[in-house]
């Protein structure tokens, strides 16, 4: 005990004691490691502390680690970068003629515009198919008859009137949903799941956006014709 007390009060003991976490994680320089080796052999207090550090390290690393798929997150980062770049790239007064400088944004701008054109094209085609489907349906509806739920609908949502097509598509991609019907006269979209993501998760992702004015799950609602 006297031996240990002598060590405990020494400057060397204080120094070695503070280095023990990095002795354990094996990041000390050789000279420091040798100093710890030399001290710990004769100091029971440091041996005890070392054991504590080692067990903490082992326990921390024994805990299961979750792995997440990064691609969906990367996609959302790309959307943020696109939005930030679009903001930076759009000056308050549009120039009369396009700049001839070799700005690195030009390639991205062109890619953005192309992507928007494709998105608009796809949505327009989707609307045309929906329009044709609607044209086949009777153009009247009684007040008391509930409209049939579109196939696959799990969520109904209303978006801000100012939302752009690209923003809408980004939000739907993020929540892994697709439009199966809508918008109705009241602006309600019927959304179906596009993946194995749970409806609640998709709903939570939708509700994170201020441009989503309303979003509710419809799975639990009774089907038309179900007993009340």
């Amino acid at each position: 005990m006297t031996h240990n007390r002598r060590f405990e009060n020494s400057a060397e003991h204080q120094e070695v004691s503070a280095l023990l976490p990095w002795y354990v994680n094996d990041t000390l320089a050789d000279a420091e490691r040798q100093k710890v080796d030399g001290h710990v052999g004769g100091c029971a207090v440091c041996r005890d502390d070392l054991a504590v550090h080692k067990r903490i390290l082992e326990s921390i690393n024994a805990q299961p680690a979750l792995d997440y798929m990064p691609m969906a997150s990367l996609k959302r980062l790309q959307a943020r970068l696109d939005a930030a770049q679009a903001q930076t790239a759009s000056p308050p007064i549009p120039p009369l003629e396009p700049s001839r400088s070799d700005s690195p944004w030009r390639g991205w701008m062109a890619a953005s515009i192309a992507a928007m054109a494709v998105a608009i094209g796809l949505l327009a085609a989707d609307r045309w198919v929906q329009f044709e489907d609607r044209a086949k349906q009777p153009n009247y509806r009684t007040v008391t008859t509930s409209s049939p739920r579109p196939q696959g609908e799990v969520i109904r949502a209303v978006f801000s009137p100012s939302i752009t097509l690209v923003e809408l598509q980004t939000i739907l991609d993020e929540a892994q949903l697709k439009i199966v019907s809508g918008p109705t006269e009241a602006g309600v979209y019927s959304l179906a799941s596009n993946s194995t993501l749970t409806v609640r998760s998709s709903l939570a992702l939708l509700r994170r956006h201020s441009t989503v004015r309303f979003a509710e799950e419809t799975l639990l609602e009774p089907e038309a014709g179900d007993p009340p």
């Binding site: 503070a18 710990v40 070392l50 054991a51 504590v52 080692k54 903490i56």
Partner: peptide, 29 residues
Amino acid sequence: KARMFHAREKLRQYLPTLGGGASELPARI
């Protein structure tokens, strides 16, 4: 260093079995 020292001291309180195991573990890692 101070943060690690305080973290170890607090954890030692919550990990009562760790303190007595020193003699069973090798002195060197």
